[in-house]
Design a protein around this nucleic acid. Structure first.
Lengths: 343, 343
DNA sequence: GTGAAAGCGCTAACAA
DNA sequence: TTGTTAGCGCTTTCAC
């Protein structure tokens, strides 16, 4: 069934059918009803490819992921929901972490005539920056995960610096002075912000960052385990608390401590960042800082549509606040002091 | 830049450019090189929408999800990787669990001229069956999560019956007789298979399914917690082991036991199904049965392409085996007996 | 209010 | 080996 068939069956021209299908004015109610009837009876469904070619509007949004992992589900969910509801379709690509793959996928989206691209940056490189700048001249792009400071490209990302500050302050307020830190991978610019927050709060409180207190990770649970091992083996003084760059490494750290019969939070407090689903079910329940990833995705897609509708819009960088979630993995050292003086 | 421009610049016809772009024969090497040069210089990228309309081949695969959750990441990852590598694009939709949403998305994929649909069924209903049968007459469909027994539609799904049998046998071999079960939601036909496996193995061993031993869940961690509470409160005799329908409810059950100061696996053994990422990092490390979800996704997309290439193919239902993963959450009661008799 | 007709950018059959 | 041309199924002027 194509528009021509419907036109013939309804005894009108294809232009009229098109008007009815697209709810456009200029058709007598009587005729409109008749056409609708025929459409319904024959279950006519317009060919969106033809429509796209003719109208020069694809109604498709492109999604570029570095690698498809659980971390993206909420954001992607938000994006798909919003688009589907708006009558837009979403084309999704993932690059398995390879730069050439990413280039190819970007090109694929371009050739698909997507109206806008949501770009989950992952690891930022100079080459990537250039590509993003270039594609943004043709198609509106909104960045996620990482922004490009020097470029005027819209982005929405969590307030990683602010979140880490909140985490650190919670630790400090709980009486911790010897605080270790599990770092994000070097290429994660946003992870660097968390590290800066750690350094800033330590410095501001005149707490010493002792040798061995800062250990790297790749965000995996395993690397958190390893980092905790390093913190303990390479530090002269055992920390009373450790802030991990994400919940996964926090869980890894707790696992290591448990194996070493070091109790959390009695002996060492551990704090994560993200508030992934398991955080509130882990034992001990993980104190962390929450990123509302669904909200991030939602804001990103809205921003993209703003940008599509109004290309001259000044590029906006949206920072989404993080929220402290206090649970059981951080000990309040102040209480302990009180208990002692009372007991 | 469109094909016409390239043709003009290269001094050839658009047909020749098309041949070069599509790597088709019938062009002199010399001319081919010349055209390629011009294409490269001007970064010509063919409009895939136009190509789709003209060739009546969209090169798009549609993905239909009931709701986008972490459970799907590995399968979706496999699908996207395979498609992207094959030069296919994937259009993804999610229905937020609403039936009307699903219908709308199905229609959207149809209108988008996708060449095939990967359908994650989720909750199966009679209405849905009809829709699937109908769309399958127009576009090749491969089902995931659930198959339709009476219909000849290809599907790939994990061997949930066999997996649960493996789990039960492990429990039985470990000396457990009083085994409780946390059920899947009623509408999950695959979950019912796990339940049947539980019943069959209990019966085969002449173990009694005591009152209160079977409790429902909705697969969430919280519902596993609640189910465990019910098992303990509603059973006359405490079980020595419980098999949960997925790892999430197993974790919920363990959390409840922990709060009640019942040790796992010393007092009660808990076993999950799925082997989600956290399973091996949870404390105790979860004994479970592994579903290789990446493999499932990969097989599904391959099957879909087979089906697209050869529509008369007899619909194949592919059952993917599950594998026992023994870790720390199940106690071997036989060992205990030995210790006792020896001690 | 309605229809005829020109394209959208490509592919593919056919002719040369 | 190459070019001409007729569509693909729609939207969108522009007449009427």
């Amino acid at each position: 069934m194509k528009i021509k068939d419907i036109a013939k069956l309804a005894g009108v021209s294809i232009a009229t059918v098109s008007r009815v299908v697209n709810d456009k004015p200029g058709v007598r109610d009587e005729v409109r009803e008749k056409v609708k009837e025929v459409i319904k009876e024959h279950e006519y469904k317009p060919n969106l490819i033809a429509r796209g070619l003719s109208s020069k509007k694809s109604n498709i949004i492109g999604l570029l992921l570095p690698k498809f992992t659980a971390y993206y589900t909420e954001q992607v969910d938000a994006i798909i929901n919003y688009c589907n509801q708006k009558g837009y379709r979403v084309m999704i690509t993932s690059s398995v972490g390879r730069f050439e793959g990413e280039l190819k996928n970007l090109s694929m989206l371009y050739k698909s005539q997507v109206e806008g691209i949501l770009y989950f940056v992952g690891k930022m490189t100079e080459e990537k920056k250039e590509n993003i700048e270039k594609i943004n001249k043709e198609i509106p792009v909104v960045l996620l995960d990482q922004a490009i400071e020097e470029l005027s490209i819209p982005a929405v990302l969590p307030d990683n610096y602010g979140g880490a500050v909140k985490a650190m302050n919670h630790l400090v307020n709980s009486g911790h002075k010897k605080i270790a830190f599990i770092k994000a991978p070097y290429y994660d610019l946003e992870g660097e912000k968390r590290y800066r927050a750690y350094q800033d709060i330590m410095r501001r409180n005149n707490f010493e960052i002792k040798e061995g207190y800062v250990q790297g990770s790749d965000y995996s649970i395993e690397s958190g385990y390893k980092a905790m091992e390093n913190i303990l083996s390479k530090s002269d003084q055992m920390p009373t608390a450790v802030l991990a760059s994400n919940d996964g490494t926090a869980i890894g750290a707790i696992n290591y401590l448990r194996e070493e019969r070091i109790e959390v939070p009695e002996d060492i407090s551990v704090m994560g960042i993200d508030d992934i689903e398991i955080a509130k079910h882990f034992i001990p329940k993980l104190t962390t800082v929450k990123q509302d990833l669904y909200y991030v995705g939602d804001e990103a897609i809205k921003l993209l549509f703003d940008y599509i509708d109004n290309k001259d819009l000044k590029a906006k960088k949206l920072i989404v606040e993080q929220e402290l979630v206090i649970r059981d993995s951080v000990r309040n050292l102040n209480d302990k002091l009180q208990v002692r003086s009372n007991g």
